[in-house]
Design a protein around this nucleic acid. Structure first.
Lengths: 205, 205
DNA sequence: AATATTATGTACTGATCGGTAATATATAGT
DNA sequence: ACTATATATTACCGATCAGTACATAATATT
């Protein structure tokens, strides 16, 4: 499940761990964005040379796609797991606090790869840019559906607007990602999350 | 006041309008970001060739700095003029509605140059990236001071936290800028602004 | 008309970009 | 040992990057 490419039993064995290499590539893309990252940056961080990279991952664009896949499924990703919480409030709470800690975590690049990976770029990056836009929309869509379910279950007020709420929370999370690149300190970001949460409907009234 | 460079009376006169050319450069940087914009992009949009660009504006980085200066001072910029409103609520209302219309204005690139100009980039773009971070912080700082004044004047509740409120509104505005690049439609963005505004303290209680 | 000054257009620079051809090397199966 | 297969290393590709040298052209001054 975690292997990036299946290693055949025949031929010279690969001298590097493809998952480790992908994790290194993710970190560079995260810091520098798709277009700001060069193949030299990648091969140096991954500890391999270009032909190995191309054999294992296709090209720069496909490597980036695999990196965002890893990004969204890595253990400390907070967005989608938050959807599993019991109540709408807890879902949003988990997302906001997850963002407040993850986006400024000192053990990883600040900010969000999905936001800063390719926000504005040249023609060469348009496909990646649109992929990231889709990922952002997908996240909001998933949150919207979760909030709709909460509304159906009486967990949100009857006059709540799940689509609007999801867009609002999505907007706040994306804004928090920008704040993280601004270098905001963790407790300041946390306070923003608390303020947002204070205005979010908690009980079913 | 509007001239970019003073044209001397001696020598061959410039064959282009420097302010017009800067406006064109701004539009390209806005769409593609600092690093996503090439000199070819710039010279084509500006209708001049490279030596003219370098003579008039220095280099790509200095041209970008002049572009963000123009960006923040152009007639339809909404942030700083909003600070002049009478009450804290009106200030924030003007900012949110200004963002909701300006960020998705069809007559200009979507989103915000200060946010998407260089959110993540290579080493070569670090100076620009930090310049933009400073601009974002300056904006929040100015809003904070305006809200503090409002609090002092009794225009905001006595327990209001101007710094936190400014950071929150800044976060929302930056998130709205990302939403704009996502291609959100204007009335959807407007509804997000209305929701934020509905939770902002309106009267002095 | 001659000169000084500045702008223009063309052609170029070295460096870096993403990507690959060619070759050597390491394994599995026979 | 031999073959097939797949990887690693080196060196390279054309294209593009930001920036500039150089010669020409247009103006003001004298």
């Amino acid at each position: 499940m975690s292997t990036v490419t299946q290693t055949p039993s025949v031929g010279r064995p690969r001298a590097f761990d493809a998952d480790d290499a992908l994790a290194k590539a993710l970190e560079v893309f995260w810091r520098k964005g798709f277009e700001g990252t060069s193949l030299t940056d990648l091969t140096q961080a991954m500890g391999i040379n270009k032909p190995s990279l191309y054999a294992a991952f296709g090209n720069k664009e496909q490597l980036f796609l695999k990196a965002i896949e890893l990004y969204e499924q890595r253990p400390c990703a907070f967005f989608y797991p938050s959807l599993e919480k019991e109540t709408a409030y807890q879902v949003v709470e988990s997302m906001l606090y997850g963002a407040a800690s993850s986006l400024v975590d000192e053990n990883q690049p600040h900010g969000c790869l999905i936001v800063q990976g390719a926000l504005a770029c040249s023609e060469a990056g348009q496909a990646i840019k649109e992929t990231l836009i889709t990922r952002r929309r997908d996240g909001e869509q998933a949150l919207c559906e979760r909030l709709q379910r909460a509304k159906d279950e009486g967990d949100l007020p009857a006059d709540a607007d799940p689509l609007l709420l999801a867009r609002y929370i999505g907007t706040v999370l994306q804004g928090m990602a920008v704040q993280a690149t601004n270098g905001i300190c963790p407790n300041e970001l946390r306070k923003v999350a608390e303020l947002v949460l204070a205005n979010f409907p908690k009980n079913n009234q």
